[in-house]
């Protein structure tokens, strides 16, 4: 039951990679580049919420590292910012991810 809100190629790639790697019971990948100082249609800022058994018993830093590793190629290349809300299945109560910060104008830097 993965949700995709818009359909850029990088967003689709991120969704596929996360789905294959973590077999999530819940996954949202939102491109938030429209909130930032980048050209229209750019795919540089993403907000990921992912729920998986893989995160059970792991600290927040370990969970982030797993997601970062999975998307290392994208983060080394086109992706500028990645918000991660990685939740173990047992802790999932349908909570909303935290809102992303407002742009400070440095997205192109």
């Amino acid at each position: 039951m993965a949700t995709v809100t818009t359909n850029g190629p990088i967003q689709a790639l991120i969704t596929t990679k996360l789905r294959q790697r973590f077999l999530p019971s819940h996954l949202t990948v939102v491109c938030e580049s429209y909130m930032h100082n980048v050209p229209k249609g750019a795919e540089k800022h993403f907000n990921v919420q992912i729920v998986s058994e893989e995160f059970e018993g792991k600290s927040v830093i370990q969970r982030h590292r797993l997601v970062n590793e999975c998307l290392a190629e994208e983060l080394a290349g086109p992706v500028h910012a990645l918000r991660i809300d990685a939740v173990p299945t047992s802790k999932w109560k349908g909570q909303e991810p935290a809102p992303s910060p407002a742009c400070r104008g440095g997205g192109h830097l």
Partner: peptide, 15 residues
């Protein structure tokens, strides 16, 4: 960070 304490240039750095 991106920017400084006084003038962060990115929302994440500011947070």
């Amino acid at each position: 960070m991106k920017g400084t304490q006084k003038e962060p240039m990115c929302g994440f750095s500011r947070n």
